[in-house]
Design a protein around this nucleic acid. Structure first.
Lengths: 197, 197
DNA sequence: GTCTATAAATCGATAGAC
DNA sequence: GTCTATCGATTTATAGAC
């Protein structure tokens, strides 16, 4: 069972990477099996259908995202600094993004075109970031509605930068946009200091 | 030959729409043939391979984009108003974008993952918008480098808004982001009035 | 130009031996 | 748990009649 759990985890890890680099539909069972080093037959012992692998990959990404947001929260108590950690993803994962785009954005877009039933689960990763960012803006003193709107603005920034970084592969562009959004964040009108009756 | 040209154009039109709605790889010859109302056999008289259809679709999109940019230029001589026409695409094509994302962004992203040789041609549509927007910013008085940076910023806006509109389907978000970018455009420091020696 | 029929390859998925 | 062998459906692509 220990070996089984390892194999299953290896399959999910390989599928996660291949779905990101090649797309969900373009990734065949053969490709995943080869990446893990097992036969196609053994494959079906762990996952009955391709949709089951997709569900496992999305679950894995949700868990990984939750863990990353917890790490960021532990890293600093300053909400603005936490938002900056998110903004910097496009730099941290710059090489991957230039080559394959944003893993969340490209998967949700593909599943939308495939009309795939697992699409809402893929969107849930976006929702995790959205809610976490909104929490940070709320902590900066924004009303809930404004905090959510700003969270979406930061998300839109990351998606736009990722899409164009992937299309043009220009690193300077990413740095400029990061600097621009950091100025926007610093100039963001918030922090109601006075008491509101 | 007249009938042939019509059939070919119908194939390109149907393939264009299906590539947008279902993705390039997920769209089969059968689906295109059914949409046009011809047999698969007849199909191969007009296009030998799937890549030939893709090339024809991209050529068609390039031509359509060029025509649209010309129409915009004819509509108003004001560069800021021209840029606004681009910004409003996310509203004009709002329903399609919420359902299928941006046709340019999703195709280039898919071709990147497929490592498809036609990817540079797909990116060329982005480049058309980029150069046209940069021309407008240059006409507003920005130096070439700054004009290109602002063009990329506007493109990134459209890609980010399209990705999140597709993921969440929220129309209010799109309107807010459009209003935000219009304010940015109005406040954009440009128009060197003084003479620079 | 358009059709039917079919080849050749690959896909997801199954059966059963070990 | 892992393997080989294979099925059935689908895909791109071809051949040849009309």
């Amino acid at each position: 069972m220990a070996a089984s759990a390892t194999t299953r985890a290896q399959i999910v890890e390989a599928a996660d990477r291949l779905f990101y680099e090649q797309g969900f539909e373009h990734t065949s069972f053969t490709a995943i099996a080869e990446a893990v080093g097992i036969s196609r037959g053994n494959f079906y012992y762990h996952f009955r259908t391709k949709d089951e692998i997709l569900a496992a990959v999305i679950d894995s990404r949700v868990a990984a995202t939750r863990a990353m947001l917890r790490r960021w929260a532990a890293e600093t108590p300053d909400p603005a600094q936490r938002i900056r950690l998110f903004i910097h993803i496009v730099l941290t994962n710059g090489a991957d993004i230039r080559a394959f785009g944003c893993p969340v954005g490209t998967l949700t877009a593909e599943l939308a075109k495939l009309r795939h039933p697992a699409r809402p689960e893929a969107v849930a990763v976006f929702t995790l970031f959205r809610a976490w960012l909104a929490d940070q803006f709320a902590a900066l003193g924004h009303e809930p509605g404004a905090a959510d709107a700003k969270a979406l603005h930061v998300l839109a920034f990351s998606q736009g930068v990722a899409a164009l970084a992937n299309a043009f592969g220009e690193e300077d562009f990413v740095h400029r946009e990061v600097a621009r959004l950091e100025r926007w964040l610093a100039d963001s009108p918030a922090r109601r200091t006075g008491a509101t009756p």
